[in-house]
Design a protein around this nucleic acid. Sequence first.
DNA 1: GTTGAGCGTT
Length: 397
Amino acid sequence: MAPGQASKTIFVANIPYDVSEEQLANTFSEAGPVNNVEIKFDPQTGRSKGYAFVQFYDEATALSAVRNLQDAPVNGRNLRVELSTDEPGPRRGGRGSRGGVPGQPGGPIGNAGGPGGPPAGGPPGGYGRPQHDDGPPRGYDQGFPGSGGRGGPPPPSQVNRVDLNALPEGSPVPPGSNATDSISKTLAAVTPGQMQDVMASMKSLITTNPEQARQLLTSKPQLAYALFQAMLLMNIVDPSVLQRIQPLSAAAAPPPASNFAPPPQQNSYSAYPPSNGGPPSNYPPYPPANAQPPAAGGGGGYNRPPPAQVGYNPPPQSGYGAPPPQAGYGTPAPAPPASGMASLPPSAQQALATLPEDQQQMLLQVLQLTPDQISALDATQKASIMQLRQQFLGAAA
DNA sequence: GTTGAGCGTT
């Protein structure tokens, strides 16, 4: 290894036996995005050995953690924090497929099976390990499933940085329209390619710099809203997700406009606590344990629960109510108004006017469905149609 | 109580 190489991983000792990896992740995310946390367990007793390894995405953050969280009190003990010196890999008996020090850890992720690791299932010692993991058994992983190719922690050079201070304020909402209308219109003027670009960038930011992504989305709720809308348009997210978050949002805050839900704030993605300077928000110390009991799973570290259903699951393929934008649904060419449009509210007409004609036709049909016709559809179709109607008709839906 | 896995071979 290169001389003077610092480790991305810190060694944390003096951890109380009853502290979970999640708590540690939470604690150390104060220094920066945490890649992985692994408390070491005694395989015989199933008990924590009182120390852990916390991996960050870069050395600087690891150093910062050593400085800032040295002696941090956790459940009545003061953590001892040092840069880790040892590698988990090859020196221990096995033939090291992890030889040496990789430029980047290919390590903490990509474990196929479930064996090994500390007994997460049922430690005899009566030490109750908080149950949160399911899925990939290795460590506390950050990152999204799905496309993108690389699952591992990005090298610092690839970490996305957004200058949050340089963001434009956005344009004012035109009179006679509301924010959600404006967002819909803006989206309608964006080509699928652009939309995908934005998605990819956002995904990348979330993956590499979750804290900033959180700040971004929190401080620019219109972005969050637009992204969600885009995901619906692109069939990345099933419209039924809407049904699930809507009551939550409505209960949490009064709707800003007559339309539906504000951006999904702290729903399933309260990843990191505010390190500093973030917008005010209430964080639970760590995600409440109201999750469904996972099957005893997993060896290694703790996996931060992924955002519930909002994965990259391609929803229904066919027979799907919403118009899947085939090609160029973004062309902002103002088409001549279709005939039935007069029956729509002005804001809906405006929104429609930004769409290509074939889409206008389709939307008109959807918007003008009678309740009887709608109720004849299956649940999925109904959901997407309701979504469209709400989008274009607002309260009139 | 204080520096970490083993499986099994493209």
